[in-house]
Amino acid sequence: MTVLVSVIVGLGLSFVIGLAARAALRAAAPARHRPMFRDMPLTASFGLAVILAYVVVAVLAPVIAPFGEGEVLGDQYLPWAAPHYLGTDKLGRDMLTRLIYGARNTVGIAFATTALAFVAGAVLGIWAALAGGWMDQGLSRLVDALMAIPALIFSLLLLTIFGTSVLTLILVIAAVDATRVYRLARSVAQGIVVMDYIEAARLRGEGNWHLIRREILPNAMAPLAAEFGLRFCFVFLSISALSFLGLGIKPPTADWGSMVRENATLITFGDITPLLPAGAIALLTVAVNFVVDWQLQRASGLKE
């Protein structure tokens, strides 16, 4: 019964947030961009609002959080009551504080990893499409071989070899995901490099770097931006999964994945506290997916 009620309340709340965010966006957007927001679905405006909220929390974490990140404040597993509004964890640290800092650590690390994977994958992919020949063949076959191994399994293998720390985590996940970005960037760029304007730029004597930056990237932006959103979701989920498995971000750094693991025993007593960090992960991923879905629909001009 309580499940049903909370689902209905949650849906109603997201509906209101979506409506409010859409109204705000319409009012705030410059006239040039207003049409884009006019027929924006509610799911997308809800997603944008959620993403914005996460960014604000992540940036202002030390200001908002009532206590210090690793501060041990009292007994373990205190119930939800002031001053610990969401109780305490197994070491007696304030749950709300750690959730807020988690936004900074988990999302920050996921974002850095995605950016790294993206820069490496996109630059190599576009460069391979531009260079062609045996360079392209060699690189592409290598990526094919790496992609034949499931991503999570390959990351686990690499983490075993290089050991688990935040830096290796970022590098390993970025390397694994860069192969996926490479694939997309290369196929998008292949469609562009055969265009006449590329030929014209080459005849002008422009170098490869100029071609990538000024001619190819601007034309490949739409699919790459959507891919960035999706890639972020994948990276975010795999980092959370690895942290949950105890192989990712290590305590005392507040991180949502490991917070679920640390407090999982509470579930067996019917306490929903461990679901909060998991829910925070889920909510952000849903929000990003909603926005990407909307952008993809707009880009493809599909009005089903």
Partner: peptide
């Protein structure tokens, strides 16, 4: 779309709780 975005352990713990 919502379920795709959930981490597996979130779904698992919801089912356990429920």
């Amino acid at each position: 779309l919502t379920v795709i975005s959930f981490p597996e352990f979130f779904v698992a713990y919801i089912l356990i709780l429920w």
